[in-house]
Simulated scan of single mutants.
Amino acid sequence: MTEQHQEQAADPPHTQRRVAKRTTMISGIAILFLFLAAAIVLAADALLLVFACILCAILLYKLSEILARRLHVKRKVALVAVVLALAAIIGFGGWGMAPQISEQSSKLAKEIPAAVERLQGEVKQHPILKRIAAELPPPEQIVKQMGNMVPNAGLFFGGVIGALGNVVIILFVGIYFAATPQLYTNGVIRLVPQDHRPRAREVQKELGQTLSSWLLGKAASMLIVGVVTSVGLGMLGVPLALILGIIAGLLDFIPYLGPIMAGIPAVLLALSISQDLALYTILLFVGIQLVEGYVLQPLIEAKAVDLPPALVIVMQLVFGTLFGFAGVALATPLAAGLAVLVKMLYIEDVLGDRSDKVGKPG
């Protein structure tokens, strides 16, 4: 009886310590969550810039890995070759087309307000559309809102100089990440408890394969869309076909919403010539998007995460509301990464369901 009383007397302090430990752990997790939430809100632009650097590093690493495998050279040597090749293509291409791009950009800035005015004039002739036209802002305000998208497109700094600064940061940090990825990935893995490190490496590998496959496919899709749009608009006789094709190719990085944004100035310019030309321009953009949606996109999703269109659009709206245009641009790769994390860490590890595959491994 004496031993039993001693155990009962010793049990409450033990229980209190256990409760105190749990309380401290829960409080620590809550504080950490609040800290992370505050960091995301206050440093959203910087975090998006870091994510863009990671995407650049993944793309460079994948290209150098493919080149090293084909040429049987070291991967760092292949990385140098990839960087030099991209610099040469961008440098010579920019040097050769810079005068034409500059001229067409200036003309585009002048033509859009006039095209909007002509469109509003034609709309006012129809009684049903006249009410809608009355609710639209003046052409100057529409052009100003379109122009405001350029500074908002920056991830960290604002304005044109800031956008160029973002590109330089993304390229240089991406090259450093791609040169020695193990240095950074091993550092992240060491933050995970030792028992879970093998699984963490599996998740990391799956994330890298998913994002690299998506980036390679999207880069090819952007190039095809840009070239086909420029050639198609040139054959139709739409003015400023080169700059409109470049815009279409760049905005193709944003699924669903990007082609609509790229098509608006092209249709407005075509409408300034004739309604038939505007109709043909719309059909051109619709045709390009149908080919991309039913041919190019399935090839991309065959080795990446198959994201439902509704989910992608919702993610674009959510990230666009939170982070501006940069959030819209990066919403799809962010959604792809989150899909992999949910599949592997929650569906497979927590729920134990490994039969329902959210994505396909590359």
Rank of each mutant, 00 (worst) to 15 (best):
T180V: 11
Q182A: 12
L183V: 14
Y184K: 14
T185I: 08
G187W: 09
G187R: 13
G187M: 04
I189Y: 07
L191N: 05
L191G: 12
V192G: 09
P193S: 12
Q194K: 14
R197F: 01
R197K: 10
E202P: 07
Q204M: 15
Q204Y: 13
Q204H: 10
K205E: 11
K205A: 11
L207A: 10
L207I: 13
G208F: 13
G208S: 14
Q209M: 06
Q209A: 11
Q209I: 00
S212A: 08
S212F: 13
S212M: 04
S213G: 05
W214V: 00
W214H: 01
L216V: 06
L216K: 01
G217H: 02
G217I: 04
G217F: 09
A219S: 02
A219C: 09
A219Q: 01
A219W: 08
A220T: 09
S221Y: 06
S221M: 09
M222R: 10
V225W: 02
V225F: 03
G226A: 01
G226M: 10
V227I: 15
V227H: 06
V228Y: 06
V231N: 00
G232D: 04
G232P: 11
L233H: 00
G234M: 08
M235K: 14
G237L: 03
V238T: 13
P239W: 08
L240P: 03
L242R: 13
I243C: 06
I243L: 15
I243F: 12
I246H: 04
I247A: 03
A248I: 00
G249Q: 02
L250K: 00
F253L: 15
L257E: 11
P259M: 08
P259V: 03
P259G: 03
M261R: 08
A262N: 04
G263A: 12
V267I: 14
L268S: 15
L269D: 05
L269N: 04
L269K: 02
A270M: 12
A270V: 00
L271R: 04
L271K: 03
S274R: 09
Q275H: 09
D276E: 14
D276Y: 04
D276W: 10
A278S: 11
Y280R: 05
I282E: 01
I282W: 04
L283Q: 06
L283N: 12
F285T: 00
V286W: 00
G287N: 09
